[in-house]
């Protein structure tokens, strides 16, 4: 099962990324667990200095921007 982590404290951009990540994972038809990482200290431990961030299985794939669904699919596939 893929672990998809959304790094952000809950602002609109973070929520948008959550929505797109769910859509991407659903369209891929994969089993996944979506986790919202909202604590700033934990976000910083990923090295993410600008949210929102997206990590897959613990590895940061994007930060400071909102990738589109197709790009997210490539990140989590």
């Amino acid at each position: 099962m893929k672990k998809i982590q959304i790094l952000g404290t809950g602002c609109p951009k973070c929520r948008k990324l959550t929505e797109l990540a769910e859509k991407a994972a659903d369209e891929l038809g994969i089993a996944y667990e979506l986790i919202k990482v909202t604590e700033l200290d934990e976000i910083m431990r990923f090295g993410v200095m600008m949210t929102p961030g997206l990590a897959v299985d613990g590895e940061v794939k994007a930060a400071g921007r909102i990738p589109d669904v197709e790009e997210i699919k490539k990140m989590i596939a």
Partner: peptide, 24 residues
């Protein structure tokens, strides 16, 4: 500005690299 870390980028720590190449 917000702080980042040159060593993190130089060390290719994924979070720092992604932050540097984001919409910033």
């Amino acid at each position: 500005a917000r702080p980042s870390c040159l060593a993190g980028v130089g060390g290719h720590v994924p979070g720092f690299v992604a932050s540097a190449t984001g919409d910033v």
